[in-house]
């Protein structure tokens, strides 16, 4: 428990640091929310007045402290751009991106673990070589391009979904999930290829370890050695990779949301950055950072659950 407490404290500190850096960044980079809001025609006096009104002329640390206090209280401020509070905006958009990321993760796990096991078990077979070649190709395709190909193939040729026909989750949850399947697939595809490759080579090298030979010597068949002994050991690097992947997928979703015209967090973030809509940018980035840190923390905990050697180091 002490360990988890320390871990949480570290996570909170990291989050604080991230928020500070983001706040600092947007103070330093050129561009002004007041002039962005009033447009290019506005007089300097009008801009100055709006700056005063928005509190932009106060000292940096005062503004940061102010923002931090209200953030902790759950008040993320009001969007300069949208006619709603940032809290409402996020509550509306986060489920969309979250669904897409979780669906991708699920696809990665469900598809790559059996494939990895199969290729490792039948190392050198035709199926293994075929999957290897396919993997190389898929890995080289970025998520947005995979999205375009999927739209073309499944959407336009096979008519399995309507490109651009996004269904809101508030109106029709089933339809929403059905529409989200293909975007999720296009994010997941390159990651699946990488995971299969990583798992295959991990399994093959673990299979050659002494303990696997011991397992054979007790009368295990190849499947028994792979599932009962080798898989858990080979999962360790995969877990780290999947943790990093989830982070990466959120970044990747920004582009894929454009390709499939999904009104998710990615789109919000893009427009907010270009319009200098600071309250929105701050909230989105801190939330994303929170997710990343949380996922990494979870991976650490999972690691310990799988590998007893790490448990020992963490709890002396």
């Amino acid at each position: 428990m002490k360990y988890v407490g320390k871990k949480l404290l570290t996570m909170l500190l990291t989050l604080l640091l991230v928020s500070f850096l983001v706040f600092l960044c947007f103070t330093v980079i050129p561009g002004d929310p007041a002039s962005a809001r009033l447009g290019t025609e506005a007089t300097p006096e009008a801009v100055e007045m709006l700056r005063e009104e928005m509190g932009l002329n106060r000292p940096f640390f005062v503004r940061y402290g102010d923002w931090l206090l209200s953030f902790v209280r759950g008040d993320f401020g009001e969007s300069y751009d949208y006619e709603m509070t940032v809290g409402e905006l996020l509550a509306d958009k986060i489920p969309i991106t979250l669904t897409m990321s979780l669906m991708s993760m699920l696809l990665i796990i469900v598809l790559s673990i059996p494939l990895g096991l199969y290729t490792a078990r039948h190392e050198g077979s035709w199926a293994d070589r075929g999957i290897y070649a396919l993997n190389q190709v898929i890995m080289a395709v970025p998520a947005f391009f995979a999205g375009i190909l999927i739209t073309l193939f499944f959407g336009i040729l096979l008519k399995m979904f309507t490109p651009g026909g996004y269904v809101s989750y508030r109106r029709d949850f089933g339809g929403f999930l059905a529409y989200m399947f293909f975007p999720s697939l296009s994010i997941a595809l390159p990651k699946i290829a990488m995971t299969v490759k990583l798992l295959r080579s991990g399994l093959i090298s673990e299979k050659k370890q002494d303990y696997a030979r011991t397992a054979y010597s007790r009368g295990n068949h190849t499947g028994g050695v792979l599932y009962k002994h080798v898989l858990k050991n080979a999962m360790l690097p995969i877990l780290t990779f999947l943790g990093m992947t989830l982070t990466d997928m959120i970044a990747g979703s920004i582009v894929v949301e454009q390709v499939f015209s999904i009104p998710g967090i990615g789109r919000v973030l893009l427009t907010a950055i270009s319009h200098r809509d600071y309250p929105v940018v701050m909230a989105v980035i801190v939330c994303l950072a929170g997710v990343v840190i949380l996922v990494n923390g979870l991976v650490d905990l999972l690691y310990q659950w799988i590998d007893p050697r790490i448990r020992l180091e963490a709890q002396p």
Partner: peptide, 28 residues
């Protein structure tokens, strides 16, 4: 057959190896 061999491995014929450090599964 391999299946027949497996019925002997670990029951009638057992083996211990040189490296006790690596011959046991670290996560079990």
């Amino acid at each position: 057959s391999r299946a027949e061999m497996r019925t002997l491995q670990g029951s009638d014929i057992s083996i211990i190896f040189q490296e006790p450090m690596t011959s046991l599964n670290p996560v079990k």
